[in-house]
Amino acid sequence: MTVSAIEFTRLGAPKLHLFAMKCDKCKELSPWWERSHCYKCGHDTLTEFELAGKGEITNYTVVYYPPREFLGQEPYVVGHILMDEGVTLPAPVMGVAPDAVEVGTRVAATLRRMKLGHEGDIYYSYKFVVDDDPAPKKAAPARRAAAKKPAAKKPAAKKPAPRRPAARKK
């Protein structure tokens, strides 16, 4: 049961930028995997929508028994992060002890090593760290409202500008 490096070209590179899919019709944001139709209104055209990288932990678990690709990282925290733009994404949260995670914590995205592929290929992607911004935004806006008015885009300078394919449009 091995997955070849061929898959890496499909899964690896696209995970180097943090985006959601935005419905062309109702503007609802969905996680990056919803490419065929909008979960809310059923419309079939969605466009990649860059996220600023800030959000809040709304739910979390601690993984003590990981799949093989994550071996050695356990125990690790995986949270549901409600992004300021209004979409919830699952992602590891770093730098917090398993017994100190708290719902409501402000977090910021950072590019890290995610996992090892079956051929030793290293997958990088976004994980989250506690946001030490001295003036964190007040409570995250309601989901629908947020979708209307995306948070100001951060300059990409902080992150290594990843090479990525042009935004896909179905």
């Binding site: 049961m1 028994y65 995986v78």
Partner: peptide, 26 residues
């Protein structure tokens, strides 16, 4: 655990390190 995780979207959602126990824990 890795095989069982294939009963979810192991390429996309579970790219985040989730497993069936941890997904259900959420």
């Amino acid at each position: 655990t890795s095989i069982i995780a294939q009963a979810a979207d192991s390429k996309e959602e579970y790219f985040s390190g989730l497993t069936f126990p941890s997904g259900t824990a959420l």
